[in-house]
Design a protein around this nucleic acid. Structure first.
Length: 916
DNA sequence: GAACTTACGTA
DNA sequence: CGTACGTAAGTTCT
């Protein structure tokens, strides 16, 4: 099996070498200060914070950057050529912390064990070693990455050499490419030395010109072209700084000589010697044991070093990429599209691959670049900022043309990003992320790199090999690496679409993809773009109110206990409740005893102490306050909140909502519901309408189980739960009291989750024996439900997956696990997945129907939100009645069940008022 | 500082 | 010892 990591030589045939260089001392030193030294040490007193931090950072780099070659450069202790020239070099540095030096050899040992080369050279600094290796890498055509906390490295930055410079945190590495250096310092990387020479470097004891900071220095360099140019005309500089410059010219010239990094250090290695080697796992284990590192870091490290062999497919036989990659934006794009992407070139059997490089979220986005790749092998890279009018129009025509099929990874993102530039996207026949989700619904991430490996058996980078890539560098901005990257993404998407289509089809998911998920994307994109109007002033009032109630609770709690403590800390809470106050212990959890709401409620009943109740109140208020604060933060300039609906995270087929999550806005309590008043109808609209399915999951259970008693109960038109209770307890519906009804209601809902007698007893506050009897009585009447649930689990165990009404699968390998806990968990998932998943299917279909009906009817009303069984619609003036009828009709006819799909609807000026 | 844990909101 | 999510805050990692 060929993978990048194991046999990089092989992958380089197609992909490009990526050389990662680390400045050992500077990064280890940063690690030392990032982590508290007193918390990281062995029993024998050896400090380990720098080793741990360095390793942790390296793991992240290996994972994110996937280098093929790695080396770490180290300083040696003796004098360097810089000391020969300037004896005071690096004088006056403060003492190295005593816990640091001993960690250097440990870090070096770890590098050796994981297969990373350590390098250094007498008389030179680590920076010089890096500069030399960067030159070697560059000459060999490798992409070079330098992780260093030393700014001198900026002089090495080129289109193919990026410095990763630590920002606020160790692993927050800023990518300093030529643009970033110029953005930050106002000069190009080759001129960075000039700037540093003028400004000076305190840490190296290199004073600069007094009164000259980076701004002045950059201004001069830009004006005179370089330091040399400045010096030539040094007499022209007026004022005090001009005089300072003339007085300190000697220092400046010395600084410039000293900050030049040597690129000719004799290291005795070639690029091939830096290939990331095999890890010596036994050695790493032994070292980690010695350092008393827990298994966590070890696993993370092994995860990046592992090859994932068994998941990688055999490589698809060479398709012989003939790629003509040209840079558009010079008037050539229209011609390229005519020649390579006509309706004859781009067909249903051979859709074009489209890659959009940009960002999206909050209902909008931005395109930085895009690439199109077609079956013939031709590909084009487009920097939209460089397009002329004719090219813009041609590109817009292509993107919006339903007759020229395209495939894209993360369709919704592309729609939002392109939409923000005024481009419409149509004719999308596949989204490789969505397709992969249907194949592997349990996965939560679908990035193109992984899919490429898994389904194409190749690295993303191997879309073309270097010699076949005709890269026209003329005319465009930006690095050739970026162009190549975007282009290979388009190629990978193009190639993946077919493979994934076959996988989806094999699983019977073709309709689900083409008929439901894919068309849903544009509906979701419009929902996100529309957002929902928020009343900021009202939210701020609420925030203040919740905050002061929370503060009052804190004060009261401190008063009761007689000292201050953090009410938000479960740990301190345990101390206070169980140690200081000696209250009865609650249920055990990993870290002691739980202080969750159930436990606090129980405690409140157990004792006379007021504290549990105060804590509960505090929790409520704090939770509400943070919810409100989160919402306020996300209100966009248009006064609306634009959530993001994720279509590929929930294993059952549901949507999820993030940034902010609008699917968990409080509704159960009165106080909580007040937050819903903040979601209001927007300007130009008349009211909000909510429409939700009543008891959809139970109706699905009735349908799937074909249990006659359930079906009859739903068809009777009476209160469902009361009807069920009457049957279980052998009374008339009128005789059913609230208690009986709620027990049966809990029982019915619990079934869909795989509830046990114990769980039911907990929820109802009855004994497990009573709960067991209740379940028996229930099943005596509704045995069909039990039979159905058992059959679902057995079938799933046999075939390995469950299926929803639209054929959406969920794979549950744990159903045959020897581990009882895992197996039973999988069983509960198995019986829930078809129910929850079918409900998800149905509302997705309903959304499509509602959306089409609104469009076809010419309505201005629009769907804003989906909350699993509910749609929130913004009603345009005068459309209430018609749209209400339309929504009711489309939702209730989304799927033909053995029971009615009841929909209840309400309207009002806010989400709260629209409740029913 | 990243990753985990606890807690809690929704369907 | 009931499914599916996302977020915030605190704590741990070693």
């Amino acid at each position: 099996m060929v993978t990048n990591r194991e046999t990089p030589e092989t992958s380089q045939a197609g992909g490009r070498a990526r050389l990662l260089l680390l400045d050992g001392h500077s990064m280890a030193f940063r690690a030392f200060f990032a982590l508290p030294v007193e918390k990281f040490g062995t029993g024998t007193g050896q400090s380990t914070n720098a080793v741990y931090g360095f390793a942790s950072m390296l793991v992240k780099l290996l994972r994110d950057e996937e280098p093929t070659h790695v080396a770490v450069a180290w300083d040696l202790s003796g004098p360097t050529f810089r000391h020969e020239e300037y004896a005071e070099y690096k004088d006056g540095r403060s003492e190295t912390p005593p816990e640091f030096p001993s960690q250097v050899p440990l870090t070096q040992e770890l590098m050796r064990l994981i297969g990373v080369v350590n390098l250094s050279s007498p008389g030179y600094e680590a920076d010089d070693v890096i500069a030399t290796l960067a030159r070697l890498g560059g000459e060999a055509g490798a992409e070079v990455l330098i992780a260093s906390g030393d700014r001198d490295a900026f002089q090495l930055v080129t289109e193919s050499c990026t410095v990763l410079y630590p920002g606020k945190s160790l692993s927050d590495l800023r990518r300093m490419d030529p643009e970033a250096v110029e953005d930050k310092y106002g000069v190009t990387p080759p001129r960075y030395r000039d700037l540093a020479a003028l400004v000076g470097e305190k840490a190296d004891n290199l004073p600069g010109v007094p009164g000259v900071g980076p701004k002045t220095a950059a201004k001069w360099i830009v004006k005179y072209g370089s330091l040399d140019g400045l010096i030539e005309r040094v007499d022209e500089i007026g004022g005090k700084v001009g005089q300072n410059l003339r007085d300190h010219l000697g220092d400046v010239l010395r600084n410039q000589r000293l900050n030049r990094l040597a690129t000719d250090v004799d290291l005795g290695v070639t690029l091939d010697d830096l290939v990331l080697g095999r890890a010596d796992r036994a050695g790493v284990d032994a070292l980690f044991d010695n350092l008393e590192f827990a298994s966590n870091l070890r696993e993370r490290l092994y995860a990046v070093l592992s090859t994932g062999e068994d998941e990688v497919r055999d490589p698809v036989d060479g398709e012989g990429f003939e790629v003509d990659l040209t840079v558009a934006g010079t008037g050539a794009l229209a011609a390229w599209l005519t020649e390579h992407a006509s309706v004859d070139d781009v067909t249903a059997a051979a859709p074009a691959g489209l890659a959009v490089d940009g960002v999206w979220g909050q209902g909008t986005g931005r395109v930085d670049a895009l690439a199109v790749s077609v079956a013939s092998g031709a590909a084009v890279f487009v920097d939209p900022s460089l397009l002329d009018a004719a090219d813009t129009e041609a590109l817009g025509g292509f993107l919006a043309d339903p007759e020229r099929p395209k495939t894209v990874h993360e369709y919704k993102g592309a729609v939002l990003a392109l939409g923000a530039h005024g481009w419409a996207l149509d004719g999308v026949v596949s989204d490789t992320a969505l397709a992969a989700y249907l194949v592997q619904p349990g996965q939560r991430r679908f990035d193109l790199t992984d899919l490429c490996r898994k389904y194409l058996g190749r690295e993303l980078d191997e879309g073309t090999s270097g010699d076949q890539l005709a890269l026209d560098l003329g005319g465009g901005e930006g690095s050739s690496d970026r162009r190549r990257e975007v282009a290979v993404r388009a190629m990978a998407t193009r190639d993946l679409a077919g493979v994934l289509a076959a996988e989806v089809d094999e699983r019977g998911g073709t309709h689900l993809l083409g008929g439901v998920e894919l068309p849903l994307v544009s509906v979701l994109a419009r929902m996100e773009r529309a957002g929902i109007a928020a009343d900021r002033v009202y939210l701020e009032e609420l925030q203040g109110e919740f905050a002061s109630a929370g503060r009052a609770a804190v004060e009261r709690a401190h008063e009761i206990v007689g000292r201050e403590f953090n009410l938000g800390s479960p740990k301190q809470l345990q101390q206070v409740l169980f140690e200081d106050l000696g209250l009865p212990r609650t249920k055990k959890i990993k870290t002691g005893y739980t202080t969750d709401a159930d436990a606090l409620t129980w405690l409140a009943a157990q004792t006379d102490n007021e504290l549990p109740a105060v804590l509960l109140h505090h929790r409520d208020q704090t939770k509400l306050r943070t919810t409100v604060e989160g919402l306020i933060k996300t209100i966009a300039d248009d006064g609306r909140i634009h959530t993001t609906f994720n279509q590929t995270v929930a294993a059952t087929g549901r949507l999820s909502s993030t940034d902010p999550n609008l699917q968990n806005i409080p509704v159960r309590t009165d106080v909580g519901r007040r937050i819903r008043r903040a979601f209001v109808v927007g300007e130009g609209y008349e009211e909000l309408l909510t429409a939700d399915y009543s008891q959809i999951e139970l109706r699905i259970m009735a349908h799937l189980s074909e249990e006659k008693a359930l079906i009859d109960a739903f068809n009777s038109g009476y209160d469902f739960h009361a009807q069920m209770a009457a049957q279980v307890f052998g009374t008339t519906v009128e005789e059913v009291d609230g208690e009986a009804r709620s027990r049966i209601k809990a029982m019915s809902y619990g079934l869909a989750y795989g509830l046990s007698a114990y769980g039911l007893s907990q929820q109802l506050g009855i004994t497990p024996e009573e709960a067991k009897r209740l379940m028996e009585d229930y099943f005596a009447e509704f045995g069909g439900v039990r039979d159905y649930l058992n059959a679902v689990v057995e079938e799933a165990r046999k075939v390995g997956y469950t299926e929803t009404m639209l054929g959406r699968r969920r794979y549950l390998p744990d159903l045959t696990s020897d581990n009882r806990q895992r197996r039973e968990m999988a069983e509960r998932m198995a019986l829930n997945a078809p129910i929850q998943g079918s409900a998800a299917d149905i509302i997705k279909v309903a959304m499509l129907q509602v959306d089409s009906a609104l469009t076809e009817g010419g309505f201005a009303s629009r769907v804003l939100l989906q909350v699993h069984d509910e749609l929130v619609v913004e009603i345009a003036p005068g459309e209430r009645e018609a749209v209400e009828n339309l929504v009711r009709h489309e939702m209730s006819t989304a799927y033909d069940l053995r029971v009615p799909l009841a929909v209840s609807v309400g309207g009002g000026r806010s989400w709260h008022d629209a409740a029913h």
